[in-house]
Amino acid sequence: MMRNWGKRDIVSIACVVLGSLLLALNIQSFVGTGGLFPGGFTGLTVLIQRSFLKFGGIEIPYSLVNFALNAFPAYIGYKTVGKKFTMYSIAVILLSGMFVEIIPPITITEDILLVTVFGGILQGIALGVTLRGNASTGGTDFISMWISQKTKQPAWNYILGMNAVMLAVAGYLFGWEAALYSIIFQFCSTQIVNYVHVRFKRMTLFIVTRSPDLVIEEIHSSTHHGVTRLEGIGTYYGEPRTVLYTVVETANVKGLVNRIHELDPTCFINVSKSEAIEGRFYQRPIE
């Protein structure tokens, strides 16, 4: 048990460091080159920085603003989402701020469309890496995770809508072209996150098997989900068959299917996407 926890923590720390570095690189390259505004509190930090510089001639550190903005959401996340999740997220906030101060501005390309699309993709990858490490970039990510836990559905598209208010302010202050390109940037980022982050996505499994007891035990032990058992007759050979029905998290599907095939090489499994479910469903808690 301790070794499993150790491995999980090592993966989380590696994802926190890598995700923070990618976020900082994106800010100092694509975001800076295109004058874009990322989503969430990262974008709000950039907006405040540029506002102080344009209207007051004051250059304030990225890390200082970002830390101040995230203080209260981090407290809320600690109380409602998960303690370990919040601590790792705070580490992302601290590290990304430190990396932004260390990494010099980088211009990869000045083509605004390329900057927007690939910047959004890199942002989505960075967010996906941090989420894989049981962390986030803070701010609106805490809100998104809280909504996801309450609704049992991915909430990243809701956050995209919330960012529209910030972009409206940015467009008014700095020009609508940058704000409109930032919408494309955030859309690309959101789609990448939706693709790589599967925690709140579910799949339905219909399993036709000759070894139902072994398969049921495996599903119970590896996923903690229940199973509905139906007895039937295979019409091709007229032999008795058991049909098992269950819904599991998408992340569990590949390993579970492989294990079921080991237990019953002749089984037939139909895997389909579950758009929505109602009723009790075990969700592994965020730590």
Rank of each mutant, 00 (worst) to 15 (best):
M1P: 03
I10C: 09
I10H: 04
A14Y: 06
L21G: 01
Q28S: 09
S29C: 09
F37D: 00
P38D: 11
G39T: 08
F41R: 01
F41G: 00
T42L: 12
L44M: 15
T45C: 10
T45H: 05
I48Q: 01
E59P: 00
Y62T: 03
A68W: 13
F72V: 15
P73N: 13
A74N: 07
K79P: 06
T80D: 05
K84D: 03
F85E: 02
M87F: 14
L95C: 06
I103W: 03
P105Y: 12
I106M: 09
T109S: 13
L113V: 14
L113G: 05
L114N: 06
V117K: 02
F118Y: 15
G120E: 04
G120K: 05
I121L: 14
I125S: 08
I125F: 15
A126N: 03
L127P: 01
L131E: 02
N134V: 01
N134F: 02
S136G: 13
D141G: 09
I143T: 09
M145L: 14
W146E: 02
I147L: 14
I147M: 14
T151W: 12
Q153H: 12
W156F: 15
N157F: 15
Y158K: 13
I159G: 01
A164D: 04
L167F: 09
L167S: 02
F174Q: 01
W176R: 02
L180W: 08
F185W: 02
V193M: 08
N194G: 09
Y195W: 07
F200W: 09
K201D: 10
P212F: 09
D213H: 12
D213W: 05
V215A: 05
V227E: 03
R229G: 00
E231C: 02
E231V: 05
G234V: 03
G234D: 07
R241S: 06
L244I: 07
V247K: 08
V248M: 03
T250F: 04
V257C: 06
R259N: 10
R259I: 06
E262N: 14
L263S: 10
L263W: 11
V271Y: 11
V271G: 03
S274I: 05
E275R: 13
Q283A: 07
